[in-house]
Design a binder for these strands. Structure first.
Lengths: 193, 193
DNA sequence: CGCGGGTTTGATGATGCTCAAGCCCGGTGG
DNA sequence: CCACCGGGCTTGAGCATCATCAAACCCGCG
């Protein structure tokens, strides 16, 4: 159950056997069925989630009722509404399962305890935060300047596993284009090769 | 020189007179002329900058030679290449002055010392980081879904001071549209009222 | 006076959206 | 085993939005 988490953490900081044990006690496993929520808009986000298996997504619903996907999380990714989690204000996003999933959840207080007892996690999450900002910047610049096709190719290059495991209309929503456009782009790309 | 900095910090955490004095010793004032850089792409970002006066911007230049503005910073804002500053990797952005400006710079090590001696700043920057992520998310969603006109109106509503003080072609670059389009949008808005 | 940066205007074309059908395929119930 | 249903993907036609290219304009400054 904890293999992927511990492996991922080990990529950035190295934990002793004892620290690994402490870590294990502070996360709560949770199984999720496809379409099940772990967070809904306007609720308070109580957990940070690590994906051991499956796929989740975070998204908002606008006034017109359209979904806008902010993030996908597959095995080895973290997902939460960071703002709501840290500030304990109502969440701006929904988070649910795209496929059946297995998660490791950690609450606010458990995270504090984790920092306390395994301070290396401070460094770990600091690095994660940096990378998160970096990728947000990249995505923002990309969304401002790339064409739909370029955006799709970027995604395909950087996250081929996401593209292959997530329904196409969600990819479109993530890229900020319509499913029709995405469908046409894919057709063109076939001919090009 | 430190009025705005201390006032801004006081909005989030309250400092004693002594802590204010320590703070003052750790920042280095710097004046900047219009168009002068404080950071260029591929250099290592050594400072976090607080704007006491004037306007700065951060931006990249793409392969086609076009500028893409990521952020404006007026009085009371912080600006840096956060990723480069924290990781000491080469910067992805340029930062320069849009107007003559007065800054307070703090280096990596000075910031560590600040955290050490005035731990309240940990909280202060944590809050700042949260807000930063929040606004990146908002901007990203906006850029994926809004029309050019909506994006402009949003900016006008949320940051009227930026719109009024920054040349129009930079606003266009920030919004990810051409200056011609922005010019036309502004004309239409005039007629609408 | 002339120059240059910034803004405006017009004409044209590409990109991507909307609306409306149709299709493919896996699942369900008769 | 077949008919039907529904979700997801595809296709087409027409249209709105924006980008591009080119030219003119405006105004402050040397």
């Amino acid at each position: 159950m904890f293999e992927i988490l511990l492996r991922k953490v080990a990529e950035k900081v190295s934990l002793s056997a004892e620290e690994e044990e402490i870590t294990k006690t502070l996360f709560v496993p949770k199984k999720l069925r496809k379409k099940q929520y772990i967070l809904q808009q306007d609720d308070i986000c109580k957990n940070l989630a690590f994906v051991e298996k499956g796929v989740l997504r975070s998204y908002t619903i606008d006034e017109a009722g359209a979904e806008h996907i902010l993030q996908f999380a597959l095995e080895g990714y973290w997902i939460t509404d960071m703002y709501s989690f840290l500030s304990q204000e109502p969440a701006g996003y929904n988070i649910d399962a795209v496929e059946d999933a297995e998660l490791l959840l950690i609450s606010n207080k458990a995270l504090e305890e984790l920092y306390e007892r395994v301070p290396k996690f401070e460094r770990y999450f600091r690095i994660l935060g940096q990378n998160n900002i970096l990728s947000l910047h990249r995505r923002l610049l990309g969304s401002l300047t790339y064409t739909a096709e370029e955006k799709y190719l970027q995604l395909l290059k950087n996250f081929p596993d996401i593209v292959s495991r997530v329904p196409q209309h969600m990819i479109a929503s993530f890229l900020g284009i319509t499913r029709e456009t995405l469908s046409r782009i894919r057709k063109q790309l076939l001919y090009k090769k």
